[in-house]
Simulated assay, not measured.
Amino acid sequence: MNIVILGAGQAAASLAAKLRALGHDGGIAIIGDEPAPPYQRPPLSKAYLLGEMGLDRLTLRAPEWWDEQGIALHLGERATRIDRDRRVVATGRGEYPYDQLVLTLGAAPRRLPATMGGDLTGVHVVRNLADIAGVQPALVAGRRLVVIGGGYIGLEAAAVARKLGLEVTLVEAAPRILGRVAAPETADMIRALHRAHGVGIVEGTGIARITGETAADGVELADGRRLSADLVICGIGIAPETALAEAAGLAIDNGIAVDALGRTSDPAIWAAGDCASFPVTGGRLRLESVGNAIDMAEAVAANMLGADAAYVPKPWFWSDQFDAKLQIAGLNLDYDRVVTRPAANGGSVWYYRDGRLIAVDALNDARAYMIGKRLIEAGRSPSPEAVAEAVELKALMA
Rank of each mutant, 00 (worst) to 15 (best):
L6N: 04
L6R: 04
G7L: 07
A8G: 12
G9I: 09
A12D: 04
S14W: 08
L15C: 09
A17P: 05
L19T: 06
R20Y: 08
A21L: 13
L22C: 07
I28G: 03
A29E: 14
I31V: 15
E34W: 12
A36C: 01
K46I: 01
K46Y: 09
K46S: 04
Y48C: 00
Y48G: 03
M53L: 14
L55V: 12
A62D: 14
A72H: 13
A72Y: 04
G76H: 12
E77R: 09
R81L: 13
R84A: 13
V88T: 13
G94F: 11
E95N: 11
Q100H: 13
V102G: 00
L105P: 00
L105W: 02
P109G: 01
P113F: 09
A114K: 11
T115I: 11
T115N: 10
R127S: 06
L129R: 05
I132P: 00
R143D: 10
L145E: 00
V147Q: 06
V147F: 10
G149P: 07
G151A: 05
G154K: 08
G165A: 07
E167I: 08
V168H: 03
V168C: 10
L170M: 13
I177L: 08
I177M: 04
L178E: 04
R180N: 08
H194Q: 10
H194M: 05
G198Y: 07
V199K: 02
I201G: 00
G204F: 03
T205W: 01
R209K: 15
T211G: 01
A215P: 01
A222R: 02
D223A: 00
R226P: 05
R226F: 04
D230Q: 06
D230H: 13
D230A: 02
I233F: 02
E241M: 09
A243Q: 15
E246S: 14
A247H: 12
G249R: 08
D253V: 07
L261H: 13
G262H: 03
G262N: 01
G273A: 12
C275T: 05
F278T: 02
P279A: 07
V280G: 03
T281K: 15
G283E: 05
R286Y: 11
E288N: 04
I294Y: 10
A297L: 07
A299G: 04
V300L: 08
N303T: 04
N303Y: 11
G306P: 07
A307W: 10
A310W: 09
A310C: 07
Y311P: 00
Y311F: 14
V312H: 13
K314N: 06
D320S: 11
Q321W: 11
F322M: 10
F322I: 03
A324G: 04
L326F: 11
Q327M: 12
I328S: 06
G330C: 09
N332A: 15
L333H: 14
D336V: 07
D336F: 12
R337T: 04
V338W: 06
T340W: 09
P342E: 02
S348A: 15
W350T: 02
D354K: 15
D354S: 15
D354C: 10
R356V: 14
I358G: 00
A359D: 02
R367C: 05
A368W: 06
G372C: 11
R374N: 11
I376K: 12
A386Y: 02
V387E: 03
A388R: 15
E389M: 08
V391G: 03
E392S: 08
E392K: 14
L393N: 03
L393T: 01
K394P: 06
A398T: 13
A398F: 15
